[in-house]
Simulated assay, not measured.
Amino acid sequence: MEQSTVTDFAVDIDDAAPRRTIAAPLPRLLHGEESIWQETNCYMDLWIELLYGWGLDPRPALAFTVTQDYEGDHFTFFKYPQADLELLYGTVVQETAIYDTLEAHIVEQVRRGHAMLVEMDSFYLPDTRATAYRTGHVKTTIAIDAIDPIAQRLSYYHSLGHYAAEGEDYQGLMRLTPELGGNGNILFPYAECAKRVRAPLAGRALSNAVAQLMRHHLGRRPAQNPISRWREEFPAQVETILARGDAYFHHYGFNLPRQLGANFEMLHHCLTWLGEHGYPVPASVRTATLSIASECKVLQFRLARAMARRRPDACSESLDNLEAAYVTAIEGLVASFGSVEPVHV
């Protein structure tokens, strides 16, 4: 893993452009070895690493996790809301129009001090050596913070760290190879630009804003217990897993147990941060969020065992525990913070 300089952000009142100042490293409480779910999803993981790289704590912006729902075929693929990133960290995230070479756009935006978030092919990402690197074409998102087109080298945030790509990997990522650069049938990638336009909130202003965000997002929580709704369809899903085999089970595990469990582990981190900054929540609520995270891993192991034995498992005990923990967590948070119900026009 390539190490990068940790920086903080400040705005010079005599100059609209941002400047960076050296900051002390933060304790890395997310993505640690003690985590139940060390990885969440590609978009969340890169933002966690990017915020750490900027010298910012990623925990305050995790209040949105109370909105996760069962979407019928997956649990919400949770992502930091752009509005929350702007409010708390002074960072504006906008879609970038790609019409020239991808390399030209990234060079221009990085030159301006921004980070470019781009959907890439893991085939060319050296940090995916254990999975897709040079073996499979898997879409993922990375955040590019430095690029040298002459040396053909870039650095990027992805998964659990900060890495570099160069040579053939750089050419593949930037679509400079003959088979990619000259192929008009390949669509431009989806790209976003993260611009740090204001100083992040700090102190009491930050903690009050996070508490208000918690009330706001609790007002957007699912109308019904999403785990109860998942449970209704779970037996049929297990049959499908057994029928379709290991590859399908891998995708199912990522999009259901992992997204649910990792989401509530992130909520636990947010509640811990709130407690550290004057907004304590009952221990039963924090315990319930961790229970969901750990029970999802138990459920995933049970499904893996069912696959090996070729026998269905209703996972009734795990689902009982998940349903009860969800009620304890969400009802306890509403009792502690209240909620701002959305206005229906």
Rank of each mutant, 00 (worst) to 15 (best):
G261H: 03
P282C: 01
A314T: 00
A304S: 13
A16P: 10
G167E: 08
P235W: 01
C315D: 02
L206P: 01
A304R: 10
G55K: 01
M214K: 06
E86M: 08
A164P: 00
A23T: 15
Y326L: 08
L88I: 09
P178K: 08
G161M: 04
E341Y: 06
K139L: 11
T67M: 08
V298R: 10
S159G: 04
I186P: 03
Y170P: 03
A205R: 15
F234G: 00
W230T: 00
E95K: 15
V345K: 05
K297W: 01
D12L: 14
P27L: 14
F78V: 12
E331V: 09
I48R: 07
Y80E: 04
A283N: 05
L260N: 05
L26I: 09
S155T: 13
E168C: 04
E49H: 07
E168S: 12
G167C: 08
A115W: 02
A247S: 10
A202H: 09
P60C: 02
N225C: 02
A151P: 03
A191T: 13
A314I: 03
E108H: 11
T287C: 06
H216A: 07
T5A: 13
R129N: 00
P257E: 07
G53Q: 06
D73I: 05
G203L: 07
P81D: 10
A17C: 10
F9M: 13
A283T: 09
Q109V: 04
E119D: 14
G32I: 07
I147W: 02
L176W: 02
E49S: 11
V285P: 03
A324Y: 07
S35P: 06
R310A: 13
T128K: 05
T91C: 12
V197Q: 15
V93N: 06
F78R: 04
A247K: 11
A17S: 14
T177S: 11
G278V: 01
D127K: 00
L303E: 09
S122K: 12
P282M: 00
M266N: 15
C315V: 01
L176Q: 14
I22S: 15
D12F: 11
V334S: 09
P126R: 04
H158A: 14
D148G: 03
L256G: 00
T287Y: 03
A304W: 09
V281C: 08
D15F: 11
E33H: 10
R215K: 14
I241K: 00
L256V: 14
A283V: 09
T5E: 13
L88Q: 02
D45P: 12
A17E: 11
L299S: 08
L180D: 11
E86H: 05
I147Q: 06
Y99I: 02
G32Y: 06
S316G: 01
